[in-house]
Structures are given as C-alpha cells and as structure tokens.
C-alpha cells in the first residue's frame, strides 16, 4: 500500500483553485521532488499533506501505518528564527513533541532519540551552541535532526537549500540522499531542477494550470521537462 495517496485532489488558496484533480502516490523509500513555478500551488499542497488545509475535493490517504502527525517537516526558515536564543539540543528535542501528549517534560528515551539524530547529522559537538550563532548550513542540519525526531518514515522538506551557498547545498543534498537510502521516504519541494534530476526517484512538476507526475525517467522524457527548461540540464 502507498504511504501517501492523493485522488482527484483539488485545493484552493484564498478562494482560487490552484490545484485541480491531482492524483499521485508516494511509496515507502521513494524520493519525490515537487518542482514548479511560483504560484503553482506547491506551498498549498504542502499544507494539505500536513493536514493544515482541507481539500476542496478529492482525498489524501495515508497508508503503511503513517500517522498524520508523524511527518518530519522542515519548513522554510523565518526571519524571527535566525536570531532565536535556543540551544541546538533544545531545538532538536522539540521534534519529539508529537509523540508525547500532555506530559510536561521530556523523558530519557526522548533525549536518547534527540542524541541519536544529532549524531546522525554530525551536529553532536554543536549541541550546547546557540542556534543563532550557527551558519545557514548548520541551522538546516539542526532543523533536519528535529524533523527526524518527529518521524521514522517520511520527511517533507520545503525548499531546504534556499539561501545556502553551492558547497553547503551539495553537502545537504548528499545528506538528504543518505537519509533516504537508510529507508526514510523523502518529499522535497524545490526550485532546483538539477537536484530533482540528480536525486529524485519520482517528480511532481506543477505549472499554473497543469501538473505532471511520474518516475524520473518518465519525467525526463516528458513535455513537462522540456517546459521546465531553464535549469533542466542533467548532471
């Protein structure tokens, strides 16, 4: 069964239909890139996948025992966050909140999960540092570690490399790819066509009035890829 399946999904943003009759499915282990123009409804789709927005029509179903609050989400950074006084470990462990109900303090088990994920992303030595003193790439790693605390199955990344320099961008892509290979399904919204072509197993390409979904090979052969020319150079 698919991890996420949308059927005839129709979504609107401020009373304008931005997505019409969209159907696609994501299976365990997939790496789906969502590419598309500004205003094509990518952010609206992300909100719908996170159950923060109700579909006008159609449905989104979760399979394989995926719970709605078990999506490891990496939102776009806000300005307020960049100078937020919080230690790295405070940020990472806040990813464990979804599984804990109303208990007021973190359990030793949750501290362990946070420590494991910091180790996994190579930020253990930063753990006492303040989030606002970190570089952009380090901050994204911290947020990624937090997202991994919230999930074992699915990461949803919203423009994870925006504002990062090329070196750090490449490192982050490799990291995401290795997380994907360890069995975590990845959905990534990106403007970066070359990343989609290099790493994705599937592509969802959205334009203002149309959409394409298929495996990477299908996408490369399709009209959609030709349409998205600009950055569509393989390799």
């Amino acid at each position: 069964m698919a991890l996420i399946k949308t059927e005839n999904l129709t979504l609107s943003y401020e009373n304008m239909t931005v997505i019409k009759d969209m159907s696609f499915e994501v299976n365990s282990g997939d790496y789906l890139c969502i590419v598309g123009e500004n205003g094509s409804g990518k952010s609206t789709l992300v909100k719908a996948l996170l159950s923060l927005k109700k579909p006008v029509d159609g449905s989104i179903t979760f399979g394989d025992g995926l719970l709605r609050r078990e999506i490891g989400y990496l939102p776009q950074q806000t300005n307020a966050q960049r100078d937020f006084p919080a230690s790295v470990s405070e940020v990472v462990i806040s990813g464990c909140l979804n599984s804990r109900g109303i208990r007021p303090f973190y359990s030793p088990r949750e501290r362990e999960i946070a420590a494991e994920n910091m180790e996994r992303l190579g930020i253990t030595e930063l753990k006492k540092r303040s989030y606002r003193d970190l570089s952009g790439g380090q901050q994204q790693r911290v947020l990624l570690a937090r997202a991994l605390c919230a999930t074992k199955k699915l990461l949803l990344l919203d423009e994870p490399v925006s504002g990062l320099d090329p070196m750090v961008t490449a490192e982050l892509y490799e990291l995401i790819s290795s997380i994907n290979k360890s069995g975590v399904t990845v959905i990534m919204v990106t403007h970066d066509m070359s990343a989609a072509l290099n790493y994705a197993s599937h592509v969802l390409c959205m334009t203002e009035d149309n959409w394409f979904f298929g495996s990477l090979d299908d996408f490369v052969a399709s009209d959609a890829a030709a349409f998205m020319k600009g950055g569509a150079v393989r390799g």
Partner: peptide
C-alpha cells in the same frame, strides 16, 4: 520557535 513545525506535528 517554529509555529509551522509545531502545527505540522500536531
């Protein structure tokens, strides 16, 4: 710290 993440995780 992050309202959208908090909302997304329930």
């Amino acid at each position: 710290f992050d309202e959208s993440f908090a909302k997304a995780t329930g």
